Amino acid sequence: MIFSSDSLAVFLAVLDGGSFSAAARKLGRVPSAISMAIAQLEAELDLQLFDRATRKALPTAAALALEPQARQVICQLNLLDAQALQLHKGLEKRLSIAIAPELHTGRWSRPLERLAQEFPNLEIEVRSASQSEAIRLLHDNRVQLALVFERPGIDERESFLEAGSQLLVAVASPNHPAALKSGTPLSEEQLAEQRQIIVASGTPTGSDPRIVLSRRIWLTDSYLATLELVQSGLGWAYLPQPLVAPLLSAGALTEVRFDNMASQLRLWIDVIWIKSEPLGLGARRYLEIMREVFAHEPARA
């Protein structure tokens, strides 16, 4: 092997520094060691890499031709070293997270952006799942973390971290009966007869029970599908405030009014994991970033 990680480092340091002395300072060596390393590399390649006619080390055409590939190789070696160190510290090959569809908008994606930067080789799988499906995936060990709405009870098998809250707004198309009656708030009986569209898997019980208010239910597998049906006038729905705010301002949606409760529902969010399953480095870092992101979120009452 002619090139090694050390000879690549020396070669690129001379290119970047413009002289053997500058490369020596960067690598913490004496100039004579840099000069000897380059001379040995040139001998093995049978190529002149630098013109030494002046005090500067001017790259030859051969050196410039080798430079792009050399930089790519050293970059790959650095990535390999970083991945090996991360694996030594417990980095999992893949981090799988189940996220309730209503939470795909807003601040809950920020930790994933940070993880992608810090662990570029970590595979991340984000599974959109209703409340009950996300919990099932977690207990079946098919995901390591689940991001869901707070539940009334506590499962002793789980640990959790508070991750802020999400404001849901009851909305309908302006030509929907629920919207046409918005001047007169809907009674509980009127509300129960209006078709509600919710995100759930197979049955309305797959969604948070606080969201399901009607006897007439249509199900979808995503909040975008729900939004499309609502805009078509086929029913009303609770949807995330960040998603519907522009449509409400533009008059494309109307907020549904109820006579016995507010049309906006704030639900707290938890990240949960199984106590008996040790978390890898990526999952632990995800939770740390979550704590940073929501450090100033008001505590739940």
Rank of each mutant, 00 (worst) to 15 (best):
A225D: 13
T105M: 10
L186P: 06
L85A: 14
A245Y: 14
G282Q: 02
D6L: 07
G28C: 10
G280F: 01
S263L: 09
R25Y: 01
P111A: 07
L224N: 12
I99T: 08
A13W: 00
A116F: 02
I197N: 03
S132K: 15
D221K: 10
L247Y: 09
N175D: 12
P242W: 06
S5I: 07
P174T: 14
I274D: 12
Q86Y: 13
L219K: 11
Q48G: 07
Q241T: 04
H104W: 14
V171A: 09
L122E: 02
R110A: 15
S201N: 14
R266W: 02
T184A: 13
L103Q: 02
S130I: 12
P177Q: 02
T105V: 15
C75N: 13
S249V: 14
K89M: 11
V148M: 13
R195E: 09
L103Y: 00
S109D: 07
Q194G: 13
L58I: 05
D270C: 12
V30N: 10
G282T: 00
T220D: 05
L243W: 10
D81K: 06
R25C: 03
E228N: 06
R284S: 13
K89H: 13
D155W: 10
S173Y: 00
D221P: 00
A84C: 09
W218S: 14
E188P: 06
F160Q: 13
L115A: 04
R285M: 00
L87V: 05
L167C: 10
A37V: 01
L167F: 07
L8I: 06
R216K: 11
R151S: 15
S182C: 12
A63Y: 06
L85C: 04
G202L: 12
P246E: 09
E118R: 06
S182F: 14
R151I: 15
V73D: 02
R142G: 07
F20N: 03
V244S: 05
N78V: 04
S109R: 07
W273Q: 04
E113Y: 07
A163T: 12
A245V: 14
G251L: 08
V256D: 01
L279N: 07
L145Y: 00
M1N: 03
A250R: 10
A65M: 10
Q48Y: 01
P152L: 08
S96Q: 06
R215C: 03
A178P: 06
I2R: 11
A100W: 14
E193N: 11
A9S: 11
E292P: 04
H104K: 11
R215G: 04
R110G: 08
G106Y: 01
E297W: 12
T254C: 15
L248I: 13
T226P: 15
Q86F: 12
Y286I: 09
L265C: 05
Q69T: 13
E150V: 15
L186N: 07
A43H: 08
V199P: 07
R284Y: 01
T226Q: 15
